[in-house]
């Protein structure tokens, strides 16, 4: 009995969506535990034995039953829509990620392009939230968000294009396929690979609004930025979207630079390898987050336009030369 493609894709998407929500919920616990260890604390401990493993569930339940407050002067339609507009692109990025050969919703031949394009859409939700709240802090934060995301998407894209250029394809499974072999991972590619990976991580930090680039959240200046007025489920959606986006970026990083699902052992270990690599990338980002201080908005823009963008352009050109010298194929 064969299932029509539309139905099978729907089922796949349903499973994926729920899996993502589950992983995202627990990745918050991972981050909290990791940060706690960095800061010589224990972290969540009491909700669920051992070591507070029920904490994310408790948080989710708490946020769901909290009162939903809409400020009186808010622009209600924009305010209410913003969390959804923010969440959808963050979830959509997972559509093109294959978690093993053939295991994914849609392995598009422009997978990387789709990912980059959709992930940049989250800014619309951010700005709607900041504008719709009718709050000065939120407005400033929305202004900062637009500034920052426009400046950091370019280096982010350029860094992500280096593996694409080396592979000669935008299809994610093809990029993984090109990384076979002992030293096949693009992060091990001489010089270019390491530089591109570092540039990718920096740009990813900025694109995900993490410290040191979290100027739009900036709780010491703008309280909580664009989400200062959100509460309850809407706040939970924003939080979910943020972490989903972060996880998506980590998956992309693992896929582009760390060989995706490739790893020793039988083929069914593939998705687990992939998840472990994504968590590794996530932990690098977390590590940076919990050890740096935030920088100022003008400095963020300066770093992007004066340093990171020229550097990634040069890197991309260099990759192009390498590929051309190698006869059209990097490998």
């Amino acid at each position: 009995m064969s299932v029509p493609p539309a139905v099978s894709m729907f089922i796949a998407a349903f499973i994926l969506l729920n899996a993502i929500v589950g992983v995202v919920t627990y990745i918050t616990l991972l981050e909290r535990k990791f940060a706690a260890r960095m800061q010589s604390r224990i972290g969540p401990y009491y909700v669920g034995w051992p070591h507070g493993w029920l904490q994310p569930i408790a948080d989710a339940v708490k946020l769901m039953i909290k009162e939903d407050i809409v400020p009186a002067p808010a622009d209600r339609a924009v305010y209410n829509l913003a969390p959804l507009v923010f969440l959808v692109p963050c979830m959509l990025v997972f559509a093109t990620i294959p978690f093993a050969p053939g295991l994914g919703v849609a392995d598009l031949n422009i997978g990387v392009l789709f990912f980059l394009a959709v992930s940049a859409l989250e800014i619309v939700g951010l700005f709607m939230g900041g504008w719709g709240s009718n709050n000065k802090y939120a407005l400033l934060s929305a202004m900062r968000a637009v500034n920052q995301i426009i400046s950091y998407d370019l280096p982010f894209i350029f860094a992500a294009l280096v593996p694409v250029l080396l592979t000669g394809s935008m299809q994610m499974s093809a990029i993984v396929g090109a990384q076979h072999g002992l030293a096949g991972w693009f992060v091990l590619y001489p010089v270019i690979g390491q530089l591109a990976f570092v540039a990718y991580l920096i740009a990813a930090l900025a694109a995900e609004n993490r410290v040191p680039f979290d100027i739009l959240e900036a709780e010491s200046e703008l309280i909580a930025g664009f989400r200062v007025e959100y509460s309850g489920m809407k706040f939970a959606l924003i939080q979910l979207g943020e972490y989903a986006h972060m996880l998506g970026t980590s998956f992309l990083g693992a896929l582009l630079f760390l060989g995706g699902w490739l790893g020793p052992g039988p083929a069914w270990l593939g998705p687990i390898w992939f998840l472990l690599k994504a968590v590794f990338v996530f932990l690098i980002l977390t590590w940076v987050r919990w050890s740096f201080v935030r920088i100022r908005v003008d400095q963020i823009l300066a770093i992007s336009w004066k340093l990171l963008l020229p550097a990634t352009v040069v890197l991309l050109l260099a990759t192009g030369f390498v590929v051309a010298a190698g006869g059209g194929r990097g490998l």
Partner: peptide, 14 residues
């Protein structure tokens, strides 16, 4: 400077 959810909190707790 570093935020309650960033490197600043780490220094603070130390």
């Amino acid at each position: 400077m570093g935020g309650a959810l960033g490197g600043g909190a780490t220094v603070f707790l130390y």
